[in-house]
């Protein structure tokens, strides 16, 4: 596909300035206290700060509580099918590299039914932001076990408690060839959430952000430890990641982690003794699928003239 811009689009004088309200659509109907609200606010703030044109911005989601996200954004949105936000996003970016694409997925969407797409989207490394809103449970369908549900956690599908240890989305992502940006943040620390989203947005490539979040309806106690005890949290800080200087007073456990160090990133991801937030890994030199496939745009006339030459090869 081609890399090009529409000169017609440029021709329209555009001196609009966007405020937060310009990105707000319907009133969010998530439960009070749901982590989705904080993510929505942080994302709207990001769009305002970046002055993204609402018509050139797309939010793609699958199915689940968090997948209602696009409905609350006054941008273009694609609320598709369960687990398939990433193929749709891939199609959009391949056809329209000019659009800013955000995929918003829940843990069921990304880590379970769409896991195959997730792995391959990491490898394609298309320039977009993928948010995993991970509340460790299926909420929309009322409390079924998800792949990230803690072992032993009771649910409607596994009333005796989840049989298996949870899947670790960070170590999976960091294990995939061509991963280029992996971060984790939490919805209850808005400044860190915002700073992480901003880094993800500015990264050229597939930016994967896992956002830990509460589900007040089904797992209200899930992150209680981490919320009430700052010592449970460890910040990964770096100038090329999130520095979180404003949080120095609250979160004392700060590790200077160079995000180019993938081995360290994998060790941090594997070790579950702390809730570790920040940019784990980033490498802009990884090939991006849409870039490797750029081709010049041809006019209809040119295409047909090439096609005519092709027919010469088949002529009798």
């Amino acid at each position: 596909m081609s890399s090009a811009c529409s000169l017609l689009h440029l021709a329209e004088a555009d001196d609009r300035e966007f405020k937060m309200g310009d990105y707000e659509a319907a009133v969010a109907r998530w439960c009070p206290g749901c982590g989705d609200h904080s993510v929505l606010t942080a994302v709207q703030r990001l769009l305002t700060e970046e002055q993204l044109k609402p018509e050139d911005t797309v939010f793609v989601s699958g199915i689940g509580c968090s997948s209602r996200f696009p409905h609350y954004m006054k941008t273009y949105g694609f609320h598709g099918t369960h687990g398939r936000a990433l193929p749709i996003s891939t199609g959009i970016k391949l056809n329209r590299p000019d659009l800013e694409v955000f995929a918003v997925m829940g843990d069921g969407d990304c880590v379970s039914i769409g896991a195959g797409h997730w792995v391959h989207a990491i490898r394609y490394n298309i320039d977009m932001v993928a948010l995993l809103l991970d509340n460790n449970i299926y909420g929309l369908t009322k409390m079924q076990t998800s792949p990230t549900t803690p072992q032993g956690q009771k649910s409607n599908t596994q009333p005796q408690g989840s049989w298996l240890p949870p899947m670790n989305p960070l170590s999976v992502t960091l294990g995939v060839t061509n991963a280029s940006f992996v971060a984790q943040t939490v919805e209850w620390v808005p400044s860190h959430l915002f700073a992480t989203l901003k880094e993800a947005f500015h990264h050229k490539g597939f930016s994967f952000v896992r956002i830990l979040q509460r589900c007040p309806a089904y797992l209200p106690k899930l992150f209680e430890d981490a919320i009430t005890d700052p010592e449970r949290i460890e910040l990964l800080v770096h100038p090329d990641g999130v520095e979180a200087k404003d949080l120095e007073g609250v979160y004392k456990d700060r590790v200077y982690h160079d995000p180019t160090d993938i081995d360290a990133a994998r060790r941090f991801a594997e070790d579950q003794s702390k809730v570790r937030i920040g940019v784990y890994f980033r490498d802009e030199s990884r090939p991006r699928y849409e870039e490797t496939r750029h081709l010049p745009t041809l006019t209809a006339e040119e295409k047909l003239s090439v096609l005519d030459q092709e027919f010469d090869r088949y002529a009798v």
């Binding site: 598709g80 398939r84 193929p87 749709i88 199609g91 659009l99 797409h117």
Partner: peptide, 12 residues
């Protein structure tokens, strides 16, 4: 995914 990519492209 092939269908999804085609749909994403078509939509946009």
């Amino acid at each position: 995914a092939a269908a999804g990519v085609a749909i994403g492209a078509s939509w946009s």
